[in-house]
């Protein structure tokens, strides 16, 4: 379980996040919606411990992510925004490297790597250098690399951005499998249908605050709209939420 309690982040005089509290349970897929600059990436970065919060606490399975980031990092699988690959390594080598850094046993690592490459349809690129990969190929490799160590919690920053239909379906299938295995997934997206299709719950961030949370139906109802897109726009543009 990921618990975020009253977390704030200030960059100088700018408030990126203001008293955000939320909880992500095991076996749950949660979508994080927000306009560009709403604070989604900052919230994620604090959860995986690369940015220190200005106030508040973050716990992952009861371990403090702010004071013991190295312990919580092994529980997390993260696909950050715009993640780069090692272009002189093959797709497979990229994935194996991170598995080794996670301290995985070689047999288990190879098995997990094969499994992920199979689900994501990466057979043709497994042995190719990452230099010259298409956006979709890069994204698949980065995703497999992020979860090769079978983390309990998965954080994905816009994982299906720019992917073709077949790849998007593969990613969706993969995320549902993770959920079925009792893992929690938090992913941010700008694609409403993606969120509607996949998520058990939706969180909306606007102006550094969490302005709505619940199932898609609950959020739509709370905003007094008829669909998620309208609800999202209404919530994001409400005067009190605009910075």
């Amino acid at each position: 379980m990921i618990e975020i309690n009253n977390v704030s982040k200030h960059f100088g005089s700018v408030t990126a996040l203001d008293g955000v509290s939320l909880q992500i349970n095991d076996g749950e897929i949660v979508g994080l919606l927000g306009l560009n600059g709403a604070g989604k990436s900052t919230l994620m970065r604090m959860t995986y411990g690369l940015v220190q919060p200005s106030g508040g606490e973050i716990y992952i399975d009861g371990i403090n992510a702010v004071t013991e980031p190295e312990r919580t990092r092994s529980l997390l699988g993260v696909l950050p925004d715009n993640a780069g690959l090692y272009k002189r390594l093959t797709a497979r080598e990229n994935i194996l490297y991170f598995g080794r850094l996670q301290g995985m046993d070689e047999n288990e690592l190879n098995e997990s790597c094969d499994h992920l490459m199979d689900i994501l349809g990466m057979d043709t690129i497994a042995g190719r250098y990452a230099d010259g990969f298409s956006l979709g190929e890069r994204m698949k490799t980065a995703l497999a690399r992020a979860i090769v160590h079978k983390p309990k919690h998965i954080l994905l920053d816009e994982p299906t951005n720019g992917l073709d239909v077949i790849t998007t379906r593969a990613v969706r299938k993969l995320l549902r499998q993770q959920k079925a295995a009792g893992r929690s997934v938090l992913f941010s997206s700008h694609l409403m249908y993606e969120v509607e299709n996949l998520c058990d719950r939706v969180l909306v961030i606007a102006g550094g605050k969490l302005v709505a949370g619940g199932t898609v139906a609950e959020v739509v109802q709370a905003a007094g709209c008829s669909n998620l897109e309208d609800a999202f726009v209404t919530l994001s543009q409400e005067p009190s939420h605009v910075v």
Binding site: E70, G84, L85
Partner: peptide, 14 residues
């Protein structure tokens, strides 16, 4: 430059 530092640092490695 290739933005691989962030994913690298997310691993539990000091």
């Amino acid at each position: 430059e290739r933005r691989s530092l962030e994913p690298l640092l997310i691993n539990p490695v000091s």
